[in-house]
Amino acid sequence: MYSGNKAMRDAFGDALADIGAQDDRIVVLTADLTDAIKVGKFKERFPERFYQMGIKESDMIGTAAGMAIDGQIPFTSTFAVFTTSLANQAIRVNVAYNNANVKIATSHGGVCVGADGATHQAFEDVALMRLIPNMTILVPCDANEAYKATIAAAKMDGPVYLRFGRIPSPVVTGADDPFEIGKARILRDGKDVAIVAMGAMVPAALEAASILAADGIKAKIVDMHTIKPLDENTIIESAKECGCVVTAEEHTVLGGLGGAVAEVLAKNLPTPLRMVGVLDTFGESGEPQEILEKYHLTYSDIVKQVRLVLKQK
């Protein structure tokens, strides 16, 4: 399907147009960001099922909930940071408490907006969504997974939060690889350390594993594409097998993937754990790569944390 480098938001746009052709209950709402989140293809093919809502995110989410309650399958589309903060109350009451079948699709998760700066960088979106009952959270790691996550979200009944990256990122999963909501994927086996990663940090984790392998350290790479419901079994089994864990996310370590894994391990199998992620801070303007380096979100940061956690075993 996709290979090389490809932006997840593009795959989302493709998937939406494909599933839209199969199911006419699929409707798409956007808050003045048709092109930015790549819903233009759907708009072109199904203009009568495309709803421009203007720059009013809460109203978009509430309207989508109403459409879902009457039997449609709405996908809302805007940036991660606007959806989860501006429209948080609408997501909580109109979508989640109603258990309305709304798919909250977002782009620009993490630092990938780069030069736009801190106001536009979503560092806490996944944590905010984790706190809300009934919510399923999908953070695909590449374009192929973004495509499959979109289709899977459309096919399941209930609220889903989808987080996509903006910039082209390495395609590391195959077109035929399975994708099941709530079932983490082992992308590389290893017995020395388990690296549990989400989103664009999965390719970084694979790169880190190659570097570690040169030193004889075998890392298991877990692609945690579903943050909720979390695949606790895979986390516990991986921790048991490897004896130490590193998490990696383009997101704050508070309440996101790192926090979620820490909760599981503390309750079930206390295991040395280190986290790669944003450390309770706002971002700033810069090229995405510059920001990833400054905020310690690269493969070399994962390598560094692995070496530290190995000493804690």
Binding site: D59, T63, G66, M67, A68, D70, A90, N94
Partner: peptide, 9 residues
């Protein structure tokens, strides 16, 4: 807003 969504549907 939910009322609007129902009406649209």
């Amino acid at each position: 807003p939910v009322a609007n969504g129902i009406a649209l549907s």
